[in-house]
Design a protein around this nucleic acid. Sequence first.
DNA 1: ATACATACC
DNA 2: TACTGGTATGTAT
Length: 653
Amino acid sequence: MARMGLNDSKAGMTGLDKQKINRIILEATKGSRFYNNEMRKEKQATERVTRLKAKLTKITQAQRLAALDELKRMENQLETTRDLSRFIVHVDMDAFYAAIEIRDNPSLADKPMAVGGTGMMLTSNYIARRYGVRAAMPGFIGKRLCPDLVFVKPNSAKYAQASKEVRAILAEYDPNFASVSLDEAYMDLTEYLEGRKCTFPSSHVEFTVPQQDLTEDMLKILNEVAPPTVDGVDSYNNCSSNSSIRKVSFGHTIEDVMREIRFKINRKTKLTASAGIGPNKMLAKICSDWKKPNGQFKVEFTRDKIIEFMRQLPTRKISGIGKVSERLLNEIEISNCKELYDKRDLIYLLFSNVSTKFFLAVAMGIGSNEVSSKNYQRKSISCERTFGEISRLADMLVKCQKLCDNLANHMKKENITGRCLTVKLKTVAFEVKQRSVSLKHHTNSTTEMFNIASEVIRSERLACQPERLRLRLMGIKMSTLKRHESDEKSIQDTLTRYFNKYDENCSQSQSTINEASKSFINIEQHKLDEKSKLDKVTCYFSKYDENSSQLQSTMKEASKNCDNMEKVTCPVCDQFYVYKSDETSWLALLNSHIDTCLQQPETMKPSQSHNDSVGSSKGKGVKRRKLQHNRMQPTTGNKTLHNFWQAKDNTHQ
DNA sequence: ATACATACC
DNA sequence: TACTGGTATGTAT
């Protein structure tokens, strides 16, 4: 229940009718598949709480004392990492997408509006927020909360442009600033401030502001705390039309500099930013939320003041403590950071070491002040899509193909390959399944990824038989990444060229679907019993092995442009289709054939007991079989058809 | 190592 | 007409 409610943890949520909002949200969503899934997850979280409480009752006084003893060591260690010497800033654009749309269409300014659609809203303006309309809320609920809500379609190119303008300003102050997203960044202003103080006042800069630019937003920045140095011709309230220039300048304190940055952002983009200033990223982030929108806040840079600041802070305000952690903490009567510290012995006894250290550091106001992303290397890359329900294999393979295509393109652009492939499937009941496969080699080839991903999909479809696998989302992720320098030539280059050439064919293959079933030739009838048919993992498209000697030979073949025959196996009826290797419509043919095949009466499909679909402890018919790696041997006499699992299994045995 | 959950924007 | 997409990391087995 709690998870359906309004998320009011962020700023600007005071004084609205939370009860009414929650009632409307509940009414809008109750009984839906999404809602039911939320209830399932809620139950899961409750189980976790139950386990936690059970653990809690077993804790003895002696254990708590021992814990405090160990915690003292941890605390001392953490204290040595406290660093108050750096000026870390978190800059956060206010209602970024919404603000951009309002800027470009001022008629929206006085209306509740959201960027997004009935499916999902990306952000909303502050008027809409008064109704409880929030980012990451589906639009149709927003519409119920606020019938006058106006939707604006997202225009990401515009947001990227605005973001670029903001980043250019940030870079003037810290060339190593780190973006979190389009609308958020961390900066380390320590060096900049030193320079500015040394050269002040010679570095003193005067800005001229045209009178028409002195908007409320701008005035708020200029009037914050103490008015800035102003050599204006007239006062803010008293502008005449011919004295149209105002001169402003900023001092050399961190707060002055931040006002200057926000001033520049507003002058350049007409958007407002909020900022938080602290000795580390955690504190800076909390502070940027403090005076939102169009405001800034600095926590005092002393240990005592920081601890005092943290004590009153609700745990949910900390980046990293979300809905579930908040709830778990609430169960042991921790809702703010004072309690978090006071009950640290319980934390120690109930949570993992990693979590304990995190919570303790939070309570002490200690965090990382490392901003530069110079050494950043991504750990995974993925692509996922939601769509209308599909359950036919053919439809799934088409989605899979597109995802792999897309992902491969991204990977090639970044010049990376990956060794672990994960397929993500979300059923129409919003259940998420993830299946990952470690490859023997790194790859970024569409076809190679597609081969593996499609096997996983096939296997998952079989695993839930006799029920149909009904999907609303599919995703492909690659991890265990390797970066390739541009000078790393030879094999990799040849490889990539070959893959690229090959991928083109695959993309083309999606274009036409012809009457494929007829073309399907029953070369030989498989005499497999039902069980082995079930367990079989068919690799129906595999031009090359993952073992390089075969790859080399395949590449030679490809360069000769020979017209080898290739073989596709239908996963439903086990018939083969034989085609020429230069034929591009194999996938379309297969898809179409499978369609036909699946529409046949059940006679061909393996049967499976229905019993374990109910009462399994995990429930939801998850009754998945493990992928059976080595069952399907390559058909003798056809060296191009083989099992991709083999390479992997050999390494494990 | 894999699956699943949580969190962030 | 209707609950995202991308990435990182923690928890559990």
